[in-house]
């Protein structure tokens, strides 16, 4: 089933046109890495899909256009780049906020909600500090708590904006595996990523966004070439194989960005 269908999406921030007609679809089972240099429009694309930023064009989520906020929240969860926890509430309560779309009016969380909360905390390995105030945790721990919040929402589509930033290597890899598993279980995941190595290793598909347009879309091995990385990012990169996986490591600035070779 098509979870997300974006067609000719355009958006502006002030006078600057940030998205210039972006079209793509996300099917069940896909883990899409959204990559591209700073300012390419990755965050704006996610926000426009969610209706958080004004845009023109068509966005269909789960086959529906312009859903009510609550109905949309049942289909798509969002992990914003800014990690905000305003009050010193416990980790478990933060994760429980992910159940909000499933609780009408003043309903209290039931057994199903508790199960989702516990499962999300177990997945992100944060049960040991479930009762601690989330504001007292380290940045990486807070990031994991907020990811667990998005997982507890149990929406078939997850949009994550730089979810791996600030995590140590072990938790970065663990997170990518969790997203890959979600996709394998039939969800769709779209994540903005800056770590090309992680993107190459775990995503089923990569989309390169540059200056508001999609310049490449396909499996990692097709999308990530030294020439394209030089054109897009202006870097020289090492690409290799290790244990059946693609290794990508930018190592220097390209001498003549824009002149592929």
């Amino acid at each position: 089933m098509t979870l997300l269908a974006v067609s000719d999406l355009r958006a502006s921030l002030g006078r600057r046109q940030v998205l210039r007609g972006v079209s793509f679809t996300v099917e069940e089972g896909e883990f899409v890495g959204l990559i591209g240099p700073n300012g390419a429009g990755k965050t704006t694309l996610l926000r426009a899909i969610l209706g958080l930023s004004p845009s023109q064009g068509s966005v269909q989520i789960g086959g529906h256009e312009r859903l009510k906020p609550r109905e949309q929240a049942k289909i798509v969860s969002y992990l914003p780049q800014e990690r905000e926890i305003a009050w010193p509430v416990t980790v478990e309560r933060v994760v429980a906020l992910g159940r909000a779309p499933h609780l009408p009016g003043f309903a209290v969380p039931g057994g199903e909600d508790q199960a989702a909360i516990q499962a999300a905390m177990a997945r992100m390995e944060i049960e040991s500090f479930a009762q601690r105030p989330a504001t007292e945790l380290s940045g990486g721990e807070q990031a994991r708590v907020l990811i667990a919040r998005a997982l507890a929402q149990e929406a078939p589509l997850l949009l994550a904006d730089e979810p791996a930033a600030g995590l140590d290597p072990a938790h970065q890899i663990a997170l990518m595996k969790i997203f890959a598993n979600l996709a394998r279980d039939g969800s769709g995941v779209v994540a903005c990523l800056h770590d090309l190595g992680l993107a190459a290793r775990f995503c089923t598909r990569l989309i390169i966004l540059e200056a508001g347009t999609i310049v490449a879309d396909g499996p990692p091995r097709a999308v990530l070439t030294p020439e394209r990385l030089r054109d897009t990012y202006g870097v020289a990169s090492f690409l290799g194989e290790h244990e059946g996986g693609l290794i990508v490591q930018p190592f220097d600035l390209a001498d003549h960005p824009g002149h592929g070779g």
Partner: peptide
């Protein structure tokens, strides 16, 4: 009340959780 709880995570996250 409910919206304020969700706003603990900021405007964007609250909005994505269905807060009007």
């Amino acid at each position: 009340a409910r919206a304020l709880d969700a706003l603990t995570l900021g405007v964007s996250a609250a909005s994505s959780l269905g807060v009007d």
